[in-house]
């Protein structure tokens, strides 16, 4: 009587095994298998954020097409979602927040490279409070910030500078931008750290005082970058399989960045379809940004370049503050060889 029962389980487990294996087979081929050939559509991960302007313009004005590559612009609402798509091979290259890129490095993903930064834009980003005049006044108060954002880094950096200890001297609360504005208005929180356009909304609240700005961070003081700079990332597999296409892609991209410097008005006209901003306002923002060209990239990402320094600083800062669990050597992800 015992035997058939045993056989039953054996068979059941074998089936289970086979199922799992076949499932995992299809998985792995998805992740590591052969990737698109040059004739296929290349996908860029973007959003309506200003840092994506060069890629957007390159698609719209046909700068990629001129190079003979077909690029699709795909929207993502957060950097982490965009980087998840990059890690799973759904997109090929992107501009993304450095914090998210470093987090992905810390998670052990070495299948992508950083090859540049679209700009050195310092957004309107800062800490706004009510009824106080200095950062020290935040002692014992509630400050809201979006966790894992550039403002989060900015807040930690500035607290470090003033010797404030998190969750001991100051209570910090994780909230999305819109929620920070409404809670600040109702007095639910004492201060908020946030970027444009929520930042402006915060400053418009009665009695609001700006306690610190992005430019007060040690990152900015040392490297001239904001606490959450955008970086250009690309999948290594893609570079390996399509070296020629990669070169054309990079050329098309930086041609677009150069074109924007000279034609801000036309760039604004195109970009407002994505941002829904007023054309003049959009043009102003575009002019305010310092677009980086191909030559500047090589400098900034060199051994002692500002961007390299910024990223290294950020990585060790994030490790020290226990935002990530592993230390990361950012240089291993920097690849300027693909820049023509």
């Amino acid at each position: 009587m015992k035997r058939p029962k045993y056989m039953f389980w054996l068979i059941l487990f074998s089936i289970f095994f086979i199922l799992i294996f076949s499932a995992c087979d299809s998985n792995t081929s998805n992740i590591n298998g052969d990737e698109p050939i040059a004739s296929q559509t290349i996908t860029y991960g973007g959003s309506s954020w200003i840092g994506h302007l060069p890629a957007y313009i390159a698609v719209e004005k046909g700068f990629f097409e001129e190079q003979g590559v077909d690029v699709e612009f795909m929207n993502f609402s957060t950097s982490s979602e965009r980087m998840t798509a990059l890690a799973s091979g759904e997109i090929d290259f992107a501009s993304t927040g450095a914090i998210s890129a470093i987090s992905l490095m810390a998670a052990g993903d070495d299948n992508f490279s950083i090859f540049g930064a679209p700009d050195t834009y310092i957004g309107q980003e800062g800490i706004v409070a009510k009824g106080m005049t200095s950062i020290e006044d935040l002692r014992g108060k509630k400050v809201a910030v979006t966790f894992a954002s550039s403002s989060h880094i900015m807040l930690l950096d500035i607290f470090n500078q003033h010797g404030l200890v998190l969750n001991k001297d100051v209570e910090i609360i994780n909230m999305a931008g819109g929620d920070i504005v409404s809670s600040f208005t109702t007095g639910e929180i004492d201060a908020g750290a946030i970027w444009s356009p929520h930042f402006e909304n915060l400053t418009h609240v009665d009695g609001a005082v700006v306690l610190a700005m992005d430019t007060d961070t040690s990152i900015y003081k040392n490297y001239g970058f904001g606490s959450g700079p955008d970086v250009l990332v690309i999948r290594n597999e893609f570079i390996k399989d399509n070296p020629n296409t990669t070169e054309k892609l990079v050329k098309g991209y930086f041609h677009s960045a150069h074109w924007i410097e000279e034609n801000p008005k036309e760039a604004a006209e195109l970009f407002v379809t994505l941002t829904n901003l007023d054309i003049d306002e959009q043009e102003q923002i575009i002019n305010h940004v310092n677009w980086l060209d191909l030559e500047q990239q090589k400098d900034m990402l060199s051994e002692n370049g500002e961007l390299t320094g910024t990223l290294e600083f950020l990585a060790s800062f994030m490790t020290e503050n226990h935002l990530i669990n592993n230390s990361v050597d950012v240089k291993e992800w920097i690849n300027i060889d693909i820049l023509p």
Binding site: T84, A107, N174, I324
Partner: peptide, 21 residues
């Protein structure tokens, strides 16, 4: 999801931001 610094839900959503699977 909003204004939480602790909890298993927060742990999962925050883990997502830092790719800590």
């Amino acid at each position: 999801l909003v204004a939480a610094n602790e909890g298993l839900g927060f742990l999962i959503m925050n883990g997502k931001e830092y790719f800590m699977t």
